[in-house]
């Protein structure tokens, strides 16, 4: 499997990652070689095998519906890059 520069750009956009134009080629090479490694999976016929999402064969534990968390806004917002009036701020979102 080999990727093209445009593939890398569109994946990077999906992942909201800025990639410098002059490093695109390197990503193309690196990602292509990783995909070549990954393509080894196709050597094995796994048809009919039930996918395993989690190593433990367990079920989800359910929590009681209780309010256990109080207001920690001050503490949480002390580490935020831009807050005002209790709100996190980002460049204007146009809807």
């Amino acid at each position: 499997m080999t990727l093209k520069a445009d593939d890398v750009r569109s994946i990077a956009h999906l992942a909201r990652l800025h990639i410098d134009d002059d490093s695109v080629d390197r990503y193309v090479d690196d990602l292509s070689s990783i995909l070549t490694l990954v393509d080894q999976m196709n050597q094995i016929d796994s048809s009919g095998v039930k996918p395993l999402a989690n190593p433990l064969d367990a079920s989800q534990r359910l929590r009681a519906d209780e309010v256990t968390e109080g207001d920690q806004r001050e503490k949480f917002q002390a580490i935020a890059p831009d807050v005002a009036d209790g709100l996190y701020r980002v460049p204007r979102v146009i809807e």
Partner: peptide, 21 residues
């Protein structure tokens, strides 16, 4: 009373971000 994946309150109308754990 609490959120689907956390113990924060779901009450409507609180001050912004005071019920976000």
């Amino acid at each position: 009373a609490s959120k689907i994946f956390s113990g924060a309150s779901t009450a409507y109308g609180a001050e912004p971000n005071t019920q976000a754990c």
